[in-house]
Simulated scan of single mutants.
Amino acid sequence: MSALNQQLWTEVKSKGLSRNIVNDINGREHYQQLNDFSVNTKTSAVVLNGVVFSKAQQVGKNFYVEAVVNKSNIAAQLLADIESYNQQAQFELDSLSQMDSLVWWLKNADVTTLERNMASRLSMLAALSPEKQTSKNLIPQLKAKVAEVHSGIKVAIAAMPNDLRMKKLVTAHFTEFNIQVVDGSVNNFSHKLILDTDWRKNYISDMYISTVQVNLILKNQKGSVVSSNEIIANANSVTSYERANEGASRRFSAELKEQDFWKALGL
């Protein structure tokens, strides 16, 4: 079975290293060149169905069998896999009109596995039965749509003046995912993230303590709530409330990272 898989589809990885060494011996230069090369191969992870064991023999404690797989059965299985991947891609494409664009993008941002599986089946089918090769492949269309939707996501962040430090920290998280953060005063955004905060201050044992309760509310362009979540952060300082506020803001940013940014937004 492994040998059959290897004939149908093999991935090859290679690497090479060349080194030139110069030695000076009694005023004469001697050159030596070393070349190191390695090649790794692996077969595609495909389980073939319809195996028939035509022969079996026992030699001592070992059993030897001859396995036969019908060529048409393999082709049918590959075609079924290809159809399944296309159906999955079509389902995601059709669901876009019924889902929020950001939620849809998060669900489909990484199509690498689906793309790799489809490529292996198409290549195996082409090698096995060129006449049964199918030109239908919706994965590139899905991948292109994911990129298109991502480019259209523009987030405006609404925050009070005393929350600008947290707004800047949230902006940095969006930037990590190449999400545009735009000016909310102009209606050119696809989503608006509202930082609804409640600051509390306490002075205990010569310590300035600041606690902030942040309600994160994400809305779409129509004003409908997409997700929401609450984060509470606090910090203290021996010098002032301002320093305690800075610490609480940094703690808020750390919470976003620890909870996973998107989960922290309630997505």
Rank of each mutant, 00 (worst) to 15 (best):
V225N: 01
I209T: 02
Q213W: 12
Y203A: 11
L216G: 01
Y203D: 07
Q221D: 05
S227A: 10
Y208Q: 02
V225W: 01
K201C: 05
V225P: 03
N236C: 13
A233I: 10
Y208C: 01
S228L: 02
S228Q: 13
W199F: 11
Q213N: 15
N202D: 11
G223Q: 01
I231E: 02
D198C: 09
I231P: 02
I217A: 07
D198W: 10
D196H: 07
M207G: 00
I204R: 12
A235F: 14
I231K: 06
N234V: 07
V212Y: 07
D196S: 10
Q213D: 13
N229T: 04
N234W: 05
Y208V: 09
Q213Y: 07
I231M: 04
N229W: 03
L216V: 05
Q213S: 14
N229K: 00
K222I: 12
V214M: 11
R200M: 13
L218K: 01
T211E: 11
Q213G: 11
Q213M: 10
T197Q: 13
G223V: 03
S227N: 07
N229Y: 04
N220A: 02
I209V: 13
D206G: 06
N229L: 02
V225S: 03
L216Y: 06
V212Q: 07
I231R: 04
Y208S: 09
R200Y: 11
D206A: 14
I232F: 01
T211I: 03
I217L: 06
S228Y: 09
S227Y: 00
D206C: 04
N220V: 01
M207E: 13
S205N: 15
L218G: 00
N215K: 13
V226R: 04
A233K: 05
E230H: 03
R200S: 10
S224K: 15
R200L: 09
I231L: 11
S224L: 15
V214W: 02
Y203N: 14
W199A: 09
M207S: 06
I209W: 05
V214T: 15
W199D: 10
I231W: 00
T197C: 03
L218R: 01
T197G: 08
K201M: 07
D196L: 15
T211V: 10
V225C: 01
I232A: 01
T211D: 00
N236W: 10
D198V: 14
K219Q: 13
V214F: 09
I209M: 04
N202G: 06
D198T: 14
N202Q: 15
R200G: 10
I204K: 08
N229M: 09
T197E: 11
A235S: 15
W199R: 12
S210Q: 11
S228E: 07
S228N: 08
V226N: 02
V214C: 12
N236I: 07
M207C: 03
G223H: 04
T211M: 02
T197Y: 05
D196R: 02
L218Q: 05
S210L: 06
G223W: 00
E230C: 00
V214G: 05
Y203F: 14
L216I: 06
I209K: 09
N220S: 00
I217F: 03
I217K: 07
V214D: 13
D206N: 15
Q213R: 15
R200T: 13
N202Y: 05
I231H: 07
E230D: 08
T197F: 01
A233N: 01
S210M: 09
Q213L: 15
